[in-house]
């Protein structure tokens, strides 16, 4: 049995079936990328896995625990960073970490959060942070409880090249430490940094070889 199992997840919006049976089985400690055309249901899948959106069918387990039925286990195991930046511009990184319900020092000394280097700009206001710093802070909040599975929805969106590189370094460190990343992306650098790739097409996840060139991947996406 794989560490991460997403089996036959279904979702329908009125008469439109977005997910018809998305299935994925992978081991932990990897960075898994999900690709797909706009509107193919990538964000929907991530929201279902995060428990924000109700599903019409399917199961999801991580490290042998059912993530759909056990909300407490899900909050303890999964970190989720939605598309965009879930931060308040006028507040500092410290203020945001205080929201997470644990002492800031404890969060910063965590195994995964330490890798993100948020401690270096703890008292900087979000409005003065770079895109990469914001994204790292959002990830730090998501991983404040030492979560081992990180769901990221287009983390590189609107980031410049150095910020992207900074973010990818952090994600690679996280995966190396045993964390699993499931990310939705369109970004070439991110695609290159992933260990495994899946394409969401016609509501199902299709494994995609990493060695294929871009045109082959685009062809598979339909």
């Amino acid at each position: 049995m794989a560490d991460l199992e997403i089996v036959s997840v279904e979702k329908r919006y009125k008469n439109k079936k977005v997910l018809t049976g998305a299935t994925l089985r992978e081991n932990a400690g990897q960075c898994i990328g999900i690709l797909g055309k706009n509107g193919s249901g990538k964000s929907t899948l991530l929201q279902i896995l995060a428990g924000i959106l109700p599903r019409d069918g399917g199961s999801f387990s991580f490290m042998g625990k059912d993530m759909f039925s056990d909300g407490k286990a899900r909050a303890g195991a999964i970190g989720y960073v939605p598309q965009g930046t879930p931060l308040y511009e006028e507040l500092t990184a410290r203020d945001h970490l205080r929201l997470c319900g644990r002492p800031v020092g404890e969060i910063l000394s965590g195994r995964f959060v330490k890798l993100l280097g948020v401690g270096e700009y703890l008292d900087l206001r979000v409005s003065r942070m770079s895109g990469g710093m914001k994204k790292r802070l959002a990830i730090a909040m998501a991983l404040s409880g030492e979560q081992k599975l990180l769901l990221l929805d287009e983390p590189s969106l609107a980031l410049d090249l150095p910020c992207k590189a900074e973010l990818h370094r952090s994600l690679s460190d996280y995966a190396r430490e045993g964390g699993t990343v499931l990310l939705v992306t369109h970004d070439l650098q991110e695609i290159a940094a992933c260990d495994k790739l899946y394409i969401l097409r016609d509501g199902v996840l299709v494994s995609c070889p990493k060695d294929g060139d871009l045109s082959a991947i685009a062809e598979r996406m339909g």
Partner: peptide, 19 residues
Amino acid sequence: FSLYRADSKAVRDFLAFSG
């Protein structure tokens, strides 16, 4: 207004996920 300016969908999703 400024209090709600940054209260984006991302924040709502994040808070909903956080319980």
